[in-house]
Simulated assay, not measured.
Amino acid sequence: MGEIESVKAVSDLFSPVSGDVMEVNARLAREPELVNNDPFGDGWMLRVKISDASELDTLLNAAAYEEYIGQL
């Protein structure tokens, strides 16, 4: 779905669901730190119209993700 750049690297961003991009957060061009500071609020990247809602069944919620990364 795009790339994210830091001082040291550029990484590809992959969407966990398929669909059409409906909106892009243009504010991130001016304030990229929002991705880290407020990812569930003003730091959103894009809004997607999901083409297959069953793909959501394979995703982790925030609590499950926190548990998962705690095990790494």
Rank of each mutant, 00 (worst) to 15 (best):
L59W: 07
I50Q: 10
L59H: 03
L34S: 02
V35Q: 03
L72H: 11
L34G: 05
N36C: 01
S51H: 07
G19F: 02
D38R: 10
L34A: 01
V21H: 01
L59K: 09
G2Y: 06
V17I: 14
R47D: 01
A9Y: 11
S15A: 14
L34H: 05
Q71A: 14
D42L: 13
L46S: 10
V35I: 15
D12N: 13
E67C: 00
V48I: 14
A62G: 00
E55I: 08
T58G: 10
A29W: 00
E31L: 09
S11D: 15
R30G: 15
A26E: 13
A26S: 12
V24C: 07
E66R: 14
R47T: 07
D42S: 15
V21N: 02
I4E: 05
V21I: 10
G19L: 04
S15M: 10
W44K: 06
F40H: 12
V10W: 10
S18V: 02
I4L: 14
D20Y: 05
E55P: 09
S51N: 09
M22V: 14
E67K: 11
A63T: 06
F14G: 00
R47A: 07
D52V: 00
N25R: 06
M45T: 11
E5D: 11
D42I: 04
V48P: 02
D42N: 10
D38G: 09
D20C: 07
L59N: 03
R27C: 02
E5P: 08
E66F: 08
D42E: 15
V17A: 02
N25A: 08
E23C: 01
D52F: 09
N37H: 02
A63L: 07
R30I: 03
L60P: 00
K49G: 09
D12A: 15
A26R: 09
S15K: 11
L13H: 09
L46V: 15
I4C: 13
A29I: 11
R47Q: 12
A62R: 12
A29N: 12
A9E: 13
A26K: 12
D12K: 15
E5I: 09
D52P: 03
A62C: 01
I69F: 03
K49F: 03
P32F: 02
I50C: 13
E3W: 12
M1Y: 07
Y65K: 04
G70S: 06
N37F: 00
L56D: 05
M45C: 04
D57N: 15
V21D: 01
K8E: 11
P16Y: 01
V21G: 04
G41D: 08
I50D: 12
Y68H: 07
F14S: 04
E23L: 13
A29G: 13
A63H: 09
S54H: 09
D38M: 05
G19Y: 05
D38C: 04
G2I: 10
N25Q: 09
L46Q: 08
V48G: 00
P39G: 08
L59R: 07
E31M: 12
A53C: 01
L59A: 02
